[in-house]
Amino acid sequence: MQVINLDGTEDTPKVILDKANGIFEVSGRSLPEDAADFYEPILKWLEDYAAAADASTKFMFKLEYFNTASSKLILDILSKLEDISGTTVIWYYHEDDEDMQEAGEEFSELVDVPFEFKTY
């Protein structure tokens, strides 16, 4: 599978989706003007990956900030992960960032995917 490797910018997150190396990561800031457009290739990639997924997938979110439009797309990503067996979401949050911790907890309540919480 092709690798998605996007550098983070001031309004879009760093994204690495690399099946060969088992790296699945969205990190940084996500406040694009058009969130649907930004996340479209990522959702498409996950659909393709679902057809030939590894036995275990650790999907890492390490977000510093995301806007509400992105939150809807993050839920879309998590919904795709629901269909990929053996998936665990690793939700990182800064140790003093209660809002990001709570956001992760809420996402975990909305989808049927195991979450692990880690601080940085």
């Binding site: 003007e33 058009d34 969130a35 649907a36 509400t68 439009a69 939150s71 809807k72 797309l73 839920l75 809420e106 309540e109 909305l110």
Partner: peptide, 26 residues
């Protein structure tokens, strides 16, 4: 919190303007 989860769970996608309808609640 309930209202936020309700909106995000039940919306089918972003509006034509690209919003999630969550801004004020957030």
């Amino acid at each position: 919190k309930m209202h936020y989860k309700d909106i995000i769970k039940n919306s089918t996608g972003l509006s034509s303007k690209g919003g999630a309808g969550l801004g004020f609640v957030d």
